[in-house]
Nucleic acid binder design. Structure first.
Lengths: 243, 243
DNA sequence: CGGCAATTTGATATCCATCAATCGGTGTGG
DNA sequence: CCACACCGATTGATGGATATCAAATTGCCG
């Protein structure tokens, strides 16, 4: 499915080398690389840009299952066909590898398979966070979590080890309000209003549609009920940090 | 995390034999076998009964992440400690195995590891169904999906290969309204009202609190927007069935 | 600068939550 | 066996959060 390959704290790239020789594809915003229902023959590794994984019901309701960032990958399924679609949100570069090749690699190399398995656990834990958000959190709380999620991925893609790095005072929001809404189980108008609420409460400042300045990170984290997305996930401030 | 070990269509029990010699524990309703935060030292295989996997926020909001049925198992995590709790819903029997033993088994036996990996994919797909439900479906639709989900598990635990088996006209609902609510992201009163709505629409009949008769399975499936939970998951009726 | 699409904002409607009362089954003690 | 108490479920009345519909504004691209 969708994988998180990059973390600040784990050895990585244990099997990403299958993508080394793979062809690279450049994607325009909106371009589709996986369509629900097609045979699942390829896996992709994201080199740059942001993509979205979606599932759309017969009545047109769409759920964004995940966004994909650098070094994430998609495409592996238990079934013979994809049950989700994947499209570019921004300009993006992905490398494409036949699924068979990954299968063989995993079958041949126990270490790779083990690494893969561990990442599956991470993925499950990530998705369960989403389940908790959708089930229990209010609109503004979901948005707070989402902003921290974007901040987290910015940290990973840009290799910013320091949580206080000044670059992290601004959060890049590459996707549309509608994408955010479909990810958070809300409507785009509600997302807009929740941004305004966060701004009125003094937690953030909207610089423009796709750039948010964080004015009160502590309060944002408190509202989100989560400290960060690093693993192990912290529900409270790490020791040494002001709670 | 939480695993689906039993399906109607896949070879199974590839590595469940580690549980053969494991000690068995009998659980009273409400009894806890895993507490969030504890070191993740054990894995469990459910022999009978129903359990729930929950995650509770610091403010007391609780999300039921999953229910567990026969031949499901729980306990493996990417982290050193559990980030969820597991309690018995009904009387239940589980067999308990040191996590280390499972780890070693998977490390030693590539076939087991591969089977494990495949089931992880199933789990992810199941959870993504939940994500879609929580994000896009209304209360009554979520309940319709939930009833089909219980029906599906009844089929698996009782080995009812025939989808039209008369035993499946009644759905057993072992958990409380509050458990259902916390699973579906609703409140218990809303669950009650949605049951009544389904009854007023003629789709079901409440025989008693924990037994539901299905009067119009086709309509229930249509409302749920899903045909069944078998894999590959069908969004429409299988060929040969009346749509 | 003009025009289109995305976003924001406003007014209202709907769905679900909340608060409160009643119902119904179960177990206990008289 | 019945009265009572307790707990979960149901139902009712009301409130609040989010959706919907519509308009105004902003941003973006030619």
């Amino acid at each position: 499915m969708l994988f998180r390959m990059r973390t600040l704290d784990l050895p990585q790239d244990v099997f990403l080398d299958i993508f080394d020789a793979a062809p690279v594809r450049d994607l325009e915003p909106g371009e589709v690389i996986i369509s629900a229902g097609e045979p699942a023959t390829q896996v992709f590794n994201i080199l740059s840009g942001v993509l979205r994984v979606t599932r759309t019901g017969t009545d047109g309701r769409r759920q964004v299952l995940s966004f994909l960032f650098r070094d994430n990958f998609v495409g592996l399924t238990a079934t013979e066909s994809y049950f989700f679609s994947v499209e570019a949100v921004t300009h993006a570069r992905v490398s494409c590898c036949p699924r068979r090749q990954l299968d063989e690699r995993l079958a041949r190399d126990p270490k790779a398979e083990r690494a893969f398995l561990n990442m599956m656990f991470r993925v499950i834990e990530d998705i369960l966070d989403v389940v908790y958000s959708l089930g229990q959190r209010t609109a503004i709380e979901r948005l707070a979590v989402f902003l921290l999620y974007l901040r987290h991925w910015r940290r990973l893609t840009d290799n910013l080890a320091d949580d206080n790095d000044p670059a992290l005072r601004e959060i890049q929001v590459p996707m549309s309000r509608e994408d955010i809404a479909d990810f958070l189980g809300l409507k785009k108008e509600t997302v807009s209003r929740s941004f305004r609420d966060l701004e009125e409460r003094g937690l953030i400042r909207r610089l423009d549609t796709h750039r948010i300045r964080v004015d009160d990170l502590k309060a944002l984290r408190h509202l989100a009920g989560i400290w960060d997305f690093a693993s192990p996930r912290r529900l409270t401030a790490p020791p040494g940090q002001p709670a």
